[in-house]
Amino acid sequence: MPLDVTRKGPPPNLPLSGGGAVFPVARTVLPPERGELEGGQRPLKFKAKFLATLLLLAGLVLFGNGAYMKAKASLAQILLAHAWDRTLDGDTGARPWPWADITPAARLEYPRLHAATIVLDGTSGQALAFGPGRMHGSAAPGQPGLTLLAGHRDSHFAFLQHARPGDALTLTGPDGVAHSYRLTETRIVDASASGLIPGGNGPATLALTTCYPFGALTPTPQRFVALATLDDGTST
C-alpha cells in the first residue's frame, strides 16, 4: 500500500493551458494597421492585460506556496533546535511552538556533508514537513534493532543524494548521548516493499530513507535507503 501522506497542493495546471490560448490573441494584435483597430483594440488589450495580471498572480501564489513549504521546513528546524535543547535539559516532550503536534526525538549529524537536522517523533505527512521523522516502533538511538528515519528529499534529507558508504554519522538521543554510525550501503527500494521493519532485536542499525529519484518533481514509488551500522565505542 503506497503511503500517500504528502499534502497534495493545488493542481499545477492552473492557467498553464490558458496561457497558451492567450498568445494567439496577443499576436493578432501585434501587426496592427494604424488607426484601423481603434474600435476593437481597447477590449482586446484590456482582456490581455487582465490575463497577464492573472498569470502573474497565479505564478506568485504558486511560487509563494512552494517557497512557503521550503521556508516552513527551514524555520521549523530552528524552532526545533530550541525545543531540542530543552529536551536535552530534561524537558521531555518539549514542543517547538505551543500548538505543535510534534516533538523532537533525536539529532542527526552528517559531518562530511555538513548536514545536521533535528529528527521528529513520528513520520506523518504533516510532521515530515517540519523535519525528518523517526518511524514509530523504531529502536532508540544506539539500541539494538532498526531505527528508521524518513525525511523529505527536497529539503532535510536532500543531502542523502551525496551519501557514500563509509561515511560517518552521529545520532544523538534525548539523553544527550551521541552514537556513531557508519554508512554501509545505499539502495533503492519500492516504498511498499522496503523490507525494513523498525525495531526488533538485531544489531543496532540506522536506516535513512527518502524519496527517489532526488530530482523528481512529483511523488514517486521508489525510495532511497541508506543503511548505517553502529560503530562500537560510543562517544559522549
Partner: peptide
C-alpha cells in the same frame, strides 16, 4: 518481511516553485 511502507517524502514544492516562475 515485506517491511513497513515507507512514507512519501517528495513534496510538490519544487514543482510549485518552477511552475510559479514560469507563470510569472
Amino acid at each position: 518481511e515485506r517491511g513497513v511502507p515507507l512514507p512519501n517524502t517528495g513534496t510538490l514544492s519544487d514543482l510549485k516553485l518552477l511552475a510559479g516562475i514560469i507563470l510569472v
